[in-house]
Design a protein around this nucleic acid. Sequence first.
DNA 1: CATCCAACATACAGCCTGTATGTTGGATGC
DNA 2: GCATCCAACATACAGGCTGTATGTTGGATG
Lengths: 211, 211
Amino acid sequence: MERAEPTRGRRKAEHMADTREALVAAGATLFASRGYAATGTEDIVSSARVTRGALYHHFSDKADLFRAVMERSARDMAQRLIEQETARAEAHPEYDAWTTLRLGFQSFLDACADPSFQRIVLIEGPAVLGHSIWDSLVDQHGYVLLAEVLTKAMQEGSIDALAVQPLTRMLAALISEASLYIARAQDQARAREETGDALDRILAGLERRPA
Amino acid sequence: MERAEPTRGRRKAEHMADTREALVAAGATLFASRGYAATGTEDIVSSARVTRGALYHHFSDKADLFRAVMERSARDMAQRLIEQETARAEAHPEYDAWTTLRLGFQSFLDACADPSFQRIVLIEGPAVLGHSIWDSLVDQHGYVLLAEVLTKAMQEGSIDALAVQPLTRMLAALISEASLYIARAQDQARAREETGDALDRILAGLERRPA
DNA sequence: CATCCAACATACAGCCTGTATGTTGGATGC
DNA sequence: GCATCCAACATACAGGCTGTATGTTGGATG
């Protein structure tokens, strides 16, 4: 995607990238704390120390900036999960797909605790971007990982064969809602435990059964 | 809540209720089709054949109207599910709690297919109202029914004892997401079948197991 | 029948988005 | 090395939309 610029053009290109990144970072902070509608474009550009002209030069409109913000948030989340996944695979090569699945889901649940991710990706995202854009973003960055793990578990025979695509999204929604429930609970430690238990029990329904 | 007016005051009170209902109905249609942000207050009042003055007389602001719209949508949904539930209980008094649970969840899945419900309650609601208001609405109208069925199933011993509150919300999210997946699928019949299967299998994880 | 007030209608002010129009600094060709 | 150009911004403006403040009216009330 990123084409190598001629050496002369580097300085300018980097400066431009900086500006864009500053806008996305400012948008991420403000959208996450105040929400999309309550955040004015002037708030964003003043936080990024540019003007509204820069914003509308880099993005087609406010929603387009939000799209970039959500994409970054989703990408970061996927990156974190992949790192945890590979680290676990290295540390415990003996784990089978079923164990990996269960542990991975608990990791996902914990990672979703991030308030910025919750607000931007889970709450505002669907309303601001609409389902087609939101779906494409989550497909790219989020579901691929989940679907991969599920497919592997099916191939190993640790869970029964089901349609991977709907199952992926249903389980992702399950974990997402669980993370929101935990975040809003008075006793978060207890909520974490209870949702974790429920998640494990629900996953057990997918376990391969004797015919 | 509703105090009996003196007989003379009826006409006026009914007219007021009509106006309010017209606003809620117009809001429901427009919010569901165009979304909250894209719907102007002028669109709503012209559709309801009143002026913006009436809107701001009955509701504190635009979000307050949306709250009334969502409340009506959630109440209708709950009402439909309760009716189905009682009808099933009368037609098949032999069903145990486990069967009732499974059939009820499939009914819930089908009921969630309503595009207006999806847009207003599931997509826009959380972003527009914030979690505390949204949660209180869903608690009142939606979760009570689910929690009731789950509790009964646990008491009958057909599913294992788990924390009802988090489980209720996780399962509701599961079904909600499934309904959205179906609505957005190209092959909806196939999506309905696949999600229905997955839902059944997931529920199976809650089934009581031999120690 | 005079009075009052709830239930609206109208008018206005402020904000906020998007666009149209400048401006500037670095890259580029010669 | 310098004129030129254009991308990367900054500024200015127009339109719309929300919320509020201020009128108005028809029915209830004593």
